[in-house]
């Protein structure tokens, strides 16, 4: 990372406060430092603690300045209209995830077959539960949602988030059924648990960063503070069996499940255009899957309704929205 001009620190110190200068080390520019300082102050004002506020301010700013992600420092990250609690050991929800979750909710509402049959959603690798809970808040109840994660810490946090947001009145009070279960999606015993006539949506934001990219391309706050389990697929055995790049192994497994469960819609988050293209290849190269899903789209960071056709390797693919390639979306022919 390039060194910051010393004058910037002076500016932050003079214009805002010494705390802003401290935060500048991780924020890299004065407006973000000012914003983060304000958010830390707001947090202190809104939460109670026996420690004096000045002391807390100092502690929190110091922690942040050492590199801890703000979301772990404050313990939350907004997601749609929700307040998602964040704890070390569980990945922090990203803005891009929030964007496609919102867009998917709109599609589901638009195409809901009838309001009497509840929509059903399977969220694999649910983490904080942000996607599952985000959809719950955006869809007309009742909905049926099942979230799965290998990490017990994540499952317990997802449940905490369900209760926390229900208590805050941000989620409807429970005529819906929502469950978070600890399980390994590679487990051969998983399928019997996923019985449901037909899922309306199978969604997943699985670990997708290659080992090399993890070392080179991730931000320090990610590499040093977020769980590797959530970011890097370390599944060499399965990779060998499924015959794909090691960072794509979750998609191979997820598509296997999609082939069996045949959900009406499927969405996977991906790292970028290369990975998106490989996932499109996996779908198109599989007769059964391409039979189910004639519609395969690539979504960018800010998805919206309009799309443009673009050639990706051997296929013409519709791209939605603006920004970098962020997800692959599949839709069954009977759902268009």
């Amino acid at each position: 990372m390039p060194r910051l001009r010393p004058s910037l620190f002076w500016t932050a110190r003079r214009d805002i406060s010494p705390f802003a200068a401290l935060l500048l080390r991780v924020c890299r520019d004065v407006p973000s430092a000012a914003n983060e300082l304000r958010w830390i102050r707001e947090h202190i004002a809104l939460t109670s603690s026996p420690a004096p506020p000045k002391f807390r301010l100092w502690k929190l700013c110091e922690k942040r300045a050492k590199g801890t992600p703000l979301q772990y420092v404050l313990g939350t990250q907004p997601f749609g209209g929700l307040e998602i609690k964040c704890r070390p050991g569980v990945l922090i929800p990203r803005h891009e995830t929030e964007a496609y979750t919102t867009e998917l909710a709109q599609i589901l509402v638009r195409h809901q077959p009838s309001s009497s049959t509840p929509l059903s959603i399977l969220d694999l690798c649910t983490g904080t539960g942000c996607i599952a809970l985000g959809l719950l808040s955006l869809l007309p109840s009742p909905v049926h949602i099942h979230g799965i994660d290998i990490s017990p810490t994540a499952i317990s946090l997802a449940n905490t988030n369900l209760h926390h947001n229900t208590r805050l009145g941000l989620l409807p009070p429970q005529p819906s059924s929502i469950h978070f279960t600890p399980a390994d999606i590679f487990s051969p015993f998983l399928l019997p648990f996923l019985t449901q006539p037909t899922w309306d949506l199978l969604i997943s934001n699985p670990p997708y960063i290659s080992r090399g990219a993890f070392a080179r391309e991730t931000a320090r706050a990610v590499r040093n503070y977020e769980p590797r389990l959530a970011l890097v697929p370390d599944r060499d055995g399965e990779t060998a069996v499924l015959g794909c790049a090691s960072e794509d192994v979750f998609y191979a497994r997820l598509l296997q499940l999609a082939g069996i469960l045949a959900p009406r819609r499927v969405f996977f988050e991906v790292a970028g255009i290369e990975q998106a293209a490989r996932v499109v290849d996996m779908v198109r190269g599989d007769a059964r899957l391409s039979g189910f899903y004639p519609q395969v789209e690539i979504w960018r960071d800010s998805p919206h309704e309009e799309y443009e056709m673009q050639r990706v390797r051997n296929y013409e693919v519709p791209f939605r929205g603006s920004g970098g390639a962020r997800g692959v979306y599949l839709c069954r022919h009977d759902q268009r």
Binding site: C27, W39, P207
Partner: peptide
Amino acid sequence: RVETMRARGAGGQHVNKTES
């Protein structure tokens, strides 16, 4: 036209930016 602050670098899981 709606624009959000683009993340530096790859975005997604690679960064956890706070700019909103």
